[in-house]
């Protein structure tokens, strides 16, 4: 539910999220009462300086880590308090992942990597959808290669395909272009963008790159564990300026 009461379909929501690392004097408050919702079918970027808590936010939103306090809701499922097994199943069925590096299992081929979540669930991927996704990311002729035989951009495309093939509630991407050259970066951002427009997927992406963030529909700014700004349909210049003020 949005603030004005109109019905908004949320892909994922984080409510009053607090995450504290360590204890006593060494305790670090990485998230400090963050409440944010990610709309269905939209491409949201999270920006902020190093140490702002943006990685912690997506890790918790993606149910990779548990909050110290607060709630995480994926689609219509409240992930708070789920046991490890249910949480794992939730990740498998409702969340897609794209990481900055070490995204793929080195021993499996591209095809096997893409099908891996289905494999874990013990089901066959929907072949038509599988083909559709593979064609969309342009990997048709690279399917039988191992990650070590693929370029960085191709590896990341495999990761995008893997995230898409399960039709999750939300795709979480942590600096997906961090290790890529500009051409490959552009490609990946295109795919993520098309995932929302063409496939109706919801994407949440952490980045520190204004160029990447400018491709999103909405940008949430984080600093010191709190949300400090929320920009819809941002431009590159707008974002550069905002980052500049945050860094200061």
């Amino acid at each position: 539910m949005s603030a004005d009461g109109s019905a908004v379909a949320w892909a994922a929501q984080v409510l009053g999220a607090t995450k504290i690392y360590g204890s006593g004097e060494a305790a670090v408050r990485a998230l400090d009462g963050v409440t944010v919702g990610f709309e269905r079918g939209r491409f949201t970027a999270i920006m902020g300086p190093s140490g702002s808590g943006k990685s912690t936010l997506v890790q918790c939103a993606a149910c990779l880590d548990r909050l110290t306090a607060g709630q995480v809701i994926i689609g219509d499922v409240d992930a708070t308090g789920l046991d490890e097994k249910r949480l794992t199943r939730l990740r498998r069925d409702r969340i897609g992942f794209i990481f900055q590096q070490f995204n793929l299992l080195p021993t499996l081929t591209a095809r096997e990597n893409i099908a891996f979540p289905s494999d874990l669930a013990g089901r066959r991927p929907d072949q038509a959808w599988f083909d559709h996704v593979v064609d969309a990311v342009g990997l048709r002729d690279r399917l039988d290669h191992r990650p070590s035989e693929l370029s960085g951009g191709q590896q990341q495309r495999v990761a995008v395909a893997r995230a898409l093939v399960e039709r999750p509630d939300v795709i979480v991407a942590d600096e997906p272009t961090g290790n890529l050259d500009s051409v490959s970066s552009n490609e990946i951002l295109d795919f993520l963008s098309r995932a929302t427009t063409e496939f109706g997927q919801s994407v949440v992406m952490v980045t520190h790159d204004p160029v990447a963030a400018a491709r999103a529909d909405r940008v949430v700014f984080l600093a010191d564990g709190r949300i400090v700004d929320d920009v819809v349909a941002p431009t590159r210049e707008q974002l550069l300026a905002r980052m500049g003020t945050l860094a200061r």
Binding site: A62, L64, E84, K85, T88, R89, R91, R92, D93, F97, F99, F102, N103, L104, L105, P106, F116, P117, L120, A121, R162
Partner: peptide, 16 residues
């Protein structure tokens, strides 16, 4: 370790 963590992240249970 990272590879196994990846399996866990994308939905592999501890049992798997």
């Amino acid at each position: 370790r990272r590879e196994l963590a990846l399996v866990r992240a994308i939905g592999g249970t501890p049992g798997q």
